[in-house]
């Protein structure tokens, strides 16, 4: 079931989160229906690996269940994304520890963009952003979080959250410029 967050009032989410923190399975199902897809997308975009993203996704929801008592009742979405982000960062660290030199990216190799779908290009370019910019732009443009929520999730000031999103967008535009030119020329 896919329930758009836009159709749900924040008060309903807050009430459900409070009930969930008390152990309500109904509340959990309600929240899970709203957030499972965005969180999965978030994990996928941050980690860019399906298996690791699945692991991080599972761990995120297990964690929020196990630590439900620590939820302060204010912003469930930010709390959830914070947990997901921390989980993803843990996986990135693990991956860095276990990856060999041969697997490292030695540089950008131009490809014939149009042979691949534009979305795959976007995902690929996203992965080339520094993590701080990547997570900011993912949360804003892909997860549709407010700047304040992004600031809460990343633990930074509101103004810094805006700066990071703007920088990420510019960087992404630069990385995607050849593709966009090619598209424009072909049309």
């Amino acid at each position: 079931m896919d329930i758009s967050k836009k159709n749900i009032r924040s008060e309903q989410i807050k009430e459900a989160a409070i009930e969930f923190s008390k152990g309500s399975t109904v509340a959990f199902s309600f929240l899970y229906a709203i957030f499972n897809r965005p969180i999965y997308r978030f994990c996928m975009r941050i980690l860019n690996d399906e298996q690791t993203a699945k692991d991080a996704f599972q761990e995120t929801f297990v964690r929020i269940y196990e630590h439900r008592a620590s939820f302060n009742g204010t912003n469930f979405e930010a709390w959830l994304y914070t947990t997901a982000r921390n989980t993803c960062i843990n996986y990135i660290r693990k991956r860095k520890r276990t990856s060999s030199l041969g697997e490292l990216d030695f540089g950008y190799v131009p490809t014939k963009y149009t042979k691949i779908g534009i979305r795959e290009h976007i995902e690929e370019m996203l992965d080339k952003l520094p993590l701080t910019l990547k997570e900011a732009v993912v949360l804003r443009d892909m997860q549709d979080l407010t700047y304040q929520d992004i600031a809460d999730v990343l633990g930074i000031d509101l103004s810094l959250a805006k700066v990071r999103v703007h920088r990420a967008r510019l960087k992404l535009k630069e990385l995607l410029a050849p593709l966009m030119r090619e598209i424009n020329e072909s049309t």
Binding site: R37, R41, I118, M142, R169, L172, L176, M180
Partner: peptide
């Protein structure tokens, strides 16, 4: 370009 990228991102969410 920025509008196109943003549009693709939004669309990719829907068709994920």
């Amino acid at each position: 370009s920025i509008l196109d990228i943003n549009y693709e991102i939004q669309k990719s969410n829907e068709e994920y």
